[in-house]
């Protein structure tokens, strides 16, 4: 079980955080990573447009229009990319090996850590690059402690 890296993309498509946990993917310069995040942001928006059937409305009665979700899982022969988009538009991209189980749980936990150590940090400006030591430490601890 290998988690390669985590990227956080803000709602405007800018890369605000990236961390590599395990080698195995090509090492990209920070410029390339920014391009990658921006491209993914655009592609994510297009994948929402492509939905062939109307979105199934949930069972709960509500008046909000149901929106199609964008790309959630991308599979390739060497890795799998999971995307979790929060309600505010921030995207968490977790790149794992193709057979990694329970990615949903990992990504939810990462979101929790983000809420705890980044959003509750009084010195953090929203939509700006994340430089929080505690977030880095908690993330490393969480990913590396997984069996």
């Amino acid at each position: 079980m290998v988690v390669f890296s985590l990227l956080v993309v803000n709602k405007a498509g800018g890369l605000v955080f990236n961390r590599e946990f395990h080698t195995g993917l090509a090492t990209l310069s920070s410029n390339d990573l920014l391009i990658l995040a921006g491209t993914f942001h655009g592609v994510h928006a297009i994948t929402r447009q492509l939905a062939p059937a109307p979105v199934q409305p949930p069972n709960t009665p509500q008046n909000f229009p149901v929106r199609a979700s964008g790309l959630e899982v991308l599979e390739s022969s060497h890795f799998r990319l999971n995307c979790f988009q929060t309600i505010t538009g921030t995207k968490f991209l977790l790149i794992t090996e193709p057979a990694q189980p329970n990615v949903e749980i990992i990504i939810r936990r990462v979101y929790e850590l983000y809420a705890d150590f980044v959003m509750k940090n009084p010195f953090y400006t929203v939509e700006m690059p994340i430089r929080c030591q505690k977030f880095d430490a908690a993330l490393d601890h969480f990913i590396k402690s997984r069996p």
């Binding site: 993917l25 929402r48 939905a51 062939p52 979700s69 599979e75 390739s76 022969s77 890795f79």
Partner: peptide, 16 residues
Amino acid sequence: RLGGDDNSFLCYRTKE
């Protein structure tokens, strides 16, 4: 670019 030249894109999935 992420996985090297011999890595091929297979599929993607959304909720729909």
